[in-house]
């Protein structure tokens, strides 16, 4: 059941992210719901599923849009893994955890992406990028992370308890 929900959420997110979400731009910036989803899945399910989910989300984006395969898969894989490591040491109940993780990893995502792009000879102005894109995207992602976390934590945790009682 959990596997089904995870796969479904990844597919639904991918379709929404590439088709509907670009209609809702805030200061020309779109939120990165893929990143939010990987963070939330990793918090709720640990590092194995987190990193696997990251790999799938990243590969989907790479294959459908980008001529170079693997950059997003690489970054999302480590996003899932690093959140998964922290997950065992922190309380899952607090809403603060996904918020903090989203802020941290949105920033981390852009930094790693910048390093990759640097090696691909893209000359991008880092300061402008931080000011115009990363700051707004972090806020958007954080706002989206809250309902996504609440929704998915309900889906994942409740059935486990009822099965345990039986």
């Amino acid at each position: 059941m959990n596997t089904f929900i995870i796969i479904l959420s990844i597919v639904v997110n991918f379709i929404l992210e590439t088709t509907l979400i670009p209609h809702f731009r805030i200061f020309q910036v779109v939120p990165n719901t893929g990143l939010v989803l990987v963070v939330v899945l990793a918090i709720l399910n640990g590092k194995t599923i987190g990193s696997l989910a990251g790999l799938v989300v990243g590969l989907l984006q790479d294959i459908m849009f980008i001529p170079v395969i693997g950059i997003n898969a690489f970054i999302y894989f480590f996003v899932g893994y690093s959140v998964g490591i922290a997950e065992t040491k922190l309380s899952k109940d607090s809403i603060l955890l996904p918020i903090l993780m989203t802020i941290l990893l949105t920033f981390g995502y852009h930094m790693v992406y910048y390093i990759f792009m640097y090696f691909f000879n893209y000359n991008l102005p880092l300061s402008k990028l931080l000011k115009d894109v990363v700051s707004i995207e972090t806020v958007c992602n954080t706002i989206i992370a809250i309902p996504v976390f609440k929704l998915l934590s309900k889906l994942f945790i409740t059935p486990k308890i009822t099965f345990g009682k039986k």
Binding site: T18, T19, V29, N32, G34, Q61, F65
Partner: peptide
């Protein structure tokens, strides 16, 4: 039919 996610 689809736009690349992200802002890059």
């Amino acid at each position: 039919i689809g736009k690349e996610p992200g802002n890059w």
